[in-house]
Design a protein around this nucleic acid. Structure first.
Lengths: 96, 96
DNA sequence: ATAAAGTAGTTTATTTTATAAACCAAATTT
DNA sequence: AAATTTGGTTTATAAAATAAACTACTTTAT
């Protein structure tokens, strides 16, 4: 009846990152920090985790002279996110 | 855009407890343990937390000679749960 | 009657996670 | 050239989740 919630996605910040990336092709570190309101440290850690499990792809390059970290969701990430959302349904019912 | 998720409800087990209690008038400890698959220790702790913030009411009585802990969601709990679900929508899109 | 096992939990300890604080390197501003 | 800002990472601390151990009975078997 109640499905299991992927603990990697069941975290406000990681969920926010995924939620943004699923609708946006790609986003850089600064944009994600602004949109989520997270501290840079926390964001850095959580991006790392999502990358390590293959839910997002991270590219480090430069924007002129400034470092620039760009993130994009992967196929695996889309699948995991979709399943997470589906599992959530078992908790919150249709009516709500 | 992305709403904040009540951290008290953003926990798989506490969410499960609330999800069950919102549709059931009342449920006892054993039923909750069975339905959630949680260990008794974890369940005990999380029930305590939900009670301390007033989201559920806990009654300790006896069923014959056996101790019996009964839980029910409160009005506050319903409100909090409803708002949590609403906030979730900002992360997962219309699909829900 | 008593030892063994089961029920219904709570408390304490351990592990995991999240968050914040401190730091680094380079670029920009004053 | 000092101070500040940008774009992060690393390390330390706080908070959570989980498991293990324990309490206090009750039931069953011997």
């Amino acid at each position: 009846m109640l499905r299991e919630l992927n603990p990697l996605l069941h975290s406000e910040l990681r969920l926010a990152i995924m939620s943004i990336l699923i609708s946006v092709e790609s986003a850089d570190f600064v944009y994600l920090r602004e949109q989520t309101g997270a501290t840079a440290g926390n964001l850095s850690v959580q991006i790392d985790k999502l990358q390590q499990v293959g839910y997002i792809a991270v590219e480090k390059g430069f924007n002129g002279k400034k470092p620039r970290t760009t993130c994009a969701i992967t196929e695996q990430g889309v699948a995991a996110f979709t399943e997470y959302v589906d599992a959530l349904r078992s908790y919150i019912g249709k009516g709500l």
